[in-house]
Design a protein around this nucleic acid. Sequence first.
DNA 1: TCAGGGCTAGGCAGATTGTCCACTCTTTCA
DNA 2: TGAAAGAGTGGACAATCTGCCTAGCCCTGA
Lengths: 179, 179
Amino acid sequence: MDNLPSPEGGRPLFLYSMTTIDDLDARLIALLTAEPRLGVLECSRRLGVARGTVQARLDRLAARGVITGFGPDVSPAALGYGVTAFVTMEIRQVSGHDPVADRLARIPEVLEVHTITGASDLLCRVVARTNADLQRVIDQIVDVQGVLRTNSIIALDTPVPYRVLPLVADVPRRESRST
Amino acid sequence: MDNLPSPEGGRPLFLYSMTTIDDLDARLIALLTAEPRLGVLECSRRLGVARGTVQARLDRLAARGVITGFGPDVSPAALGYGVTAFVTMEIRQVSGHDPVADRLARIPEVLEVHTITGASDLLCRVVARTNADLQRVIDQIVDVQGVLRTNSIIALDTPVPYRVLPLVADVPRRESRST
DNA sequence: TCAGGGCTAGGCAGATTGTCCACTCTTTCA
DNA sequence: TGAAAGAGTGGACAATCTGCCTAGCCCTGA
């Protein structure tokens, strides 16, 4: 599940070589995003191409790492974790970022960790059941060895939930062969 | 695709009623996360339950909004958008947050927008092809009517990519009936 | 004690999948 | 200029899975 896989046995892909997305690729991704349960056959019908083509495209998109999976999208809110917060933190730099990140990763409520530029060193996204519960989670974070100071920002609302579709539709395209 | 759908015709679900996740539910989600392409039949084999049970569980999880979909996970990095940044911004409060969010949503590189507590009003996650390209995206954000000031933080690395699995495994469980 | 919900086990027809193949067209490159 | 490689098409195959249904069993709550 590397981010930038190279084709089996081939030389590594360079950044500029990954931007190649076909118009058909984009339509396929858009279609699957809209109706994820569609099978290959149904996709081929909707897109007006042969089934083998869709199959090949999907294989290639997966091989290139453009599509990393089809995992079920789980809503933390539906599980009772209705509070989302972003926590930035300063850490003891001596040992680098990783040991801290490893320990943060052991906290289930920590959904995501980034090392960042700026005054802080790490940014992580956490969820909690309530604001009081958020305190508990933050306490766990503060308890992590190497964490010096934290700063929490609560997400009150999410007017634009995570999405990639507009980006896919906007990617500079490779020329489609047919048409 | 609402976040908190209520069962057809029923009264709306309340927060405390959504926390009910079975051990079997958790195992099912974990299984599907690990191997999303599995069919219902294969899942039932792996979990050691009847096919109809898996089918019913999936239906219920989807109906409750726990599983919101099975969309393809697209990697912006693989599309050439290797730079991720978090942009906080202050906005003109008079007209509320929404108009600004709407305009931000029109920028494909804006993947996510939250209204937040603290000194800033909005936090959004953006991607760009390069640091120079990030400047272009930020310019677009600044150009949005109502945006007064922005502050950008670049994500250098992501030691813990977005994940929900540990949370699912950790959710306070309803007692499983069988076993 | 009854009703309802959930699980198991089985059956059925229809649809889909993975995997072949042969053929065509276009681009690339020696 | 000609050959090779890459991509798409259309078709075919067996194996499998899906959606849907039935019936019985068990447990819980009213």
